[in-house]
């Protein structure tokens, strides 16, 4: 019974938490754009415009829902749902802290420590593409279809380097579970480097982050919704909360991706060089580990914003070229090197 209760509390908490970050991200994105572009950004609703996401939410919810007459209704309605549901569920296997001991019970700060964590993320992540392609197809709009096609090609292509980069991580740590990998990143190796994934897999990290940006449809890979070319891509015909689900799902994806990056490559909840867990009590360590994890995640969330307002956009064929001719051979090379290294040292 307790386990059930704890699980439900964890699900609700993490769900609300991820939603909250996504909401705040919409604000950070726009204020960040203002910061980078020498302008204030939204600053009317509340202090520093903090209530802007709220206002946007109210607007999206109260807007009239319009379904284009020629749209394929079922697909059209299904699209945003299929896009946002996987986005919300992917965070389930990503940790958000070490563990906390309450009333003698050890609670790990992760919704569920599945021993195939990676595969779950990859599988759920690729579900999102159905939402995009169905939305694009169901809208019966040429721009939407173009956006959907671009997105499909891009997501399918970039899943390969993403998976291959993750595979190298599995070689290094010998497990699929994100919690186990996180735990293994404590301490140092070679005497001075933190035991983090990025130092063991530098090339893998670059491959992963590039592929992750492409998976998240972020600049410079935001072709599926390239405003100047295909209006808004797959969500051209969407309005009200259906559009909101698409936009929201994207931000939730960002949170998930940042979480995965931190858990795999940036030492999860560990501070470099210091093992805080040894000095703090079980409850305070739980909170501190969560804070450390969250700080790292925030940095990567900010990086998404930063990159978005800095780089121009690729062209469709260039994205494909980069994926197939650049990232995949590199990822294979990375696997080869990793395997060789492990073979020689172990």
């Amino acid at each position: 019974m307790d386990d059930w209760l704890i699980a439900i509390i964890k699900v609700v908490c993490i769900w609300v938490w991820v939603l909250l970050i996504a909401v705040v991200m919409t604000w950070v994105e726009r204020r960040g754009a203002g910061l980078i572009q020498d302008r204030p950004g939204p600053n009317r609703a509340g202090p520093w415009g903090l209530f802007q996401p709220l206002a946007d939410g109210i607007k999206l919810f109260t807007k009239e829902e319009i379904i284009p007459t020629k749209a394929r209704k079922i697909l059209y309605i299904l699209g945003p749902l299929l896009f946002s549901l996987p986005a919300f569920s992917a965070y389930a296997v990503v940790p958000f802290g070490d563990k906390i001991i309450l009333g003698g019970k050890e609670i790990i700060l992760q919704v569920s420590d599945v021993n195939i964590g990676f595969l779950f993320i990859l599988a759920i992540g690729s579900m999102g593409v159905y939402g995009v392609i169905l939305g694009g197809w169901g809208s019966t709009n040429k721009y939407s279809i173009l956006g959907g096609l671009r997105s499909t090609a891009q997501m399918v292509s970039y899943e390969v380097p993403l998976g291959l980069a993750l595979l190298a991580i599995v070689f290094v740590y010998g497990t699929f579970s994100l919690r186990d990998i996180s735990l293994a990143q404590q301490g140092t190796f070679l005497g001075f480097l933190p035991n983090w994934g990025i130092f063991k897999q530098p090339l893998g990290f670059i491959l992963f982050i590039v592929a992750a940006y492409a998976e998240a449809n972020r600049v410079p890979f935001d072709l599926p919704e390239a405003e100047s070319e295909i209006v808004s891509g797959y969500h051209t015909e969407y309005g009200s909360m259906r559009l909101g689900l698409y936009l929201f799902g994207e931000y939730v994806n960002l949170v998930t991706i940042s979480g995965v990056i931190v858990a795999l490559y940036f030492g999860s909840w560990h501070m470099p060089y210091i093992d805080l867990g040894a000095y703090l009590g079980p409850i305070s360590w739980g909170i501190v580990s969560f804070c450390i994890f969250f700080l790292k995640v925030s940095f990567f969330l900010w990086m998404f914003v930063w990159v978005r307002w800095t780089l121009p956009r690729f062209r469709y064929d260039q994205v494909m070229g980069l994926g197939w001719r650049g990232l995949i051979p590199l990822a294979l090379f990375n696997i080869f090197i990793t395997a060789l290294f492990i073979q020689l040292t172990v």
């Binding site: 754009a33 980078i36 572009q37 020498d38 302008r39 600049v219 410079p220 935001d222 390239a226 100047s228 307002w309 800095t310 780089l311 121009p312 956009r313």
Partner: peptide, 16 residues
Amino acid sequence: LGVDLGAFTPFFYLII
């Protein structure tokens, strides 16, 4: 031209 190629920021530097 920047905006159309996806680079928003130069637009604001110039437009200011």
